[in-house]
Design a binder for these strands. Structure first.
Lengths: 146, 146
DNA sequence: TGACATTGGTCAGAGTCTCTGACTAATTTG
DNA sequence: CAAATTAGTCAGAGACTCTGACCAATGTCA
């Protein structure tokens, strides 16, 4: 057992993911966006520019639609989203991000960019590129919505 | 915006992590290890060969020690762990994995190895090596216990 | 040595997240 | 058009997590 970590790839993926998420949450809280929870954020993150159906949010977040509904209720109360009728289907409603959500997203994006810069500095441009390449390729076998 | 995904590195890390975790859980359940939850597993995973203190488990899992205590209680009732006094500190106890836990870990390890093989097949040996290299290097800036 | 701070852990209570099951309404299918 | 599917809700329960308060053992340092 020399150099190279013996950690399995799962842990290796999780560690930087968690570090990044922590950074984003801290920055969001500092910017005043402290009235939503991680669970709510994981749903909000998946709202498309033109709104997204509850069922689709649930699928992508891998939670039940009941849970998704519960979380969207909270987000709605906090002013992050609104629900509008889906013009193409009278059963459905579209969950739309409100201005507050996009403002939060901007803060989050800035932090992600910052952390990505730090990582690139640590790894070097070449290795960072390789990392993103490999991960992107991996989506093909791990992302049901790829 | 061409080819290459525009997803941020966080999502890119999360997707394969979740896919792997799902695979492991499914296999565990199929092998009869269906009496513990993901939250419990995330604590159990961190128990060292000679046992680990509650406080340390809590820190590494990034949960409060109360929550860790709650989860270890469940694991103890289900027969996955035992608590023994820490010979070096009368306040502390060591959470030790029981045989059942090591058996589950074996199943989990096998699945992880299988998935890693699949990923290597998809990425090619070279890119898989680069991926693990980059992730391992990233630990230095993202893992507080590195 | 002895007061004081720190550390390991528990108890109690509350809020949040998540699920299963059962149901309504609209849409799609044969 | 009847039957099956899909979008979503309501109700209830279990699981997870936190804050605050607390006790006992250990460490610090004058």
């Amino acid at each position: 057992m020399v150099a190279e970590s013996e950690l399995n790839t799962g842990v290796l993926l999780f560690l930087p993911y968690r570090a990044l998420e922590n950074r984003v949450f801290a920055a969001l809280a500092e910017a005043g966006f402290d009235d939503f929870t991680p669970a709510q954020a994981r749903v909000m993150q998946r709202i498309g520019p033109d709104g997204t159906r509850l069922t689709e949010l649930a699928e992508q977040a891998q939670i039940t639609k009941q849970t998704a509904g519960f979380l969207v209720d909270q987000l709605e109360k906090a002013g992050y989203v609104t629900r509008v009728p889906d013009p193409t289907d009278k059963r459905a409603r579209l969950v739309r991000g409100a201005a507050k959500a996009w403002a939060a997203k901007e803060v989050a994006n800035a932090v992600v960019a910052e952390v990505e810069r730090e990582w690139e500095e640590h790894l070097g441009k070449r290795r960072m590129k390789q990392l993103r390449e490999a991960l992107t390729l991996l989506r093909e076998v791990t992302d049901p919505w790829a």
